[in-house]
Design a protein around this nucleic acid. Sequence first.
DNA 1: GCCAACGTTGGC
DNA 2: GCCAACGTTGGC
Length: 157
Amino acid sequence: MAKKPHYWLIKSEPNAFSIDDLFNSPDQTESWDGVRNYQARNMMRDEMHLGDLVLFYHSSCKPPGIVGIAEVSRTAYPDHTAWDPNSPYFDAKSTPEHPRWFMVDIKFYKKYSRIISLDELKQQPELCEMPLVKRGSRLSIMPVTQQQWDIINKLAD
DNA sequence: GCCAACGTTGGC
DNA sequence: GCCAACGTTGGC
């Protein structure tokens, strides 16, 4: 059985929530709510451990890329925004008794001195297996291998 | 703003 | 349970 990943990558639109927003959050911590994709949910709920490190990726901006690192500070618990009719993430099929969606808390860990752009990531042959660099990949949460982690952090130095 | 990719929905 | 239609993501 393969070793469970302890590194991750999450996407966020900086217009909505950037790594600076995370830095400025109370206790530099924010709940990662609004995930409404089963594959992403399952990884978050079943495989994210306390202390796992997470690459913070800015999407839908110029340029898209990895801007820093966050840390999982609380493991999965029900995403209550699914129960709020006024929330954009409302889902009538999720109830407190049978929650369908989950979230974790992440805490600011570090911000890179520069953005590692998607373009630069694509130029690394060793990163070609990352879902991120593949055409049409829409996964908002994905595992990152130790090797990929090391390469990316070396680029950030 | 375009559109390819792909996940979800719903009729049958 | 198939699959066409639809909606969303996200780079360009």
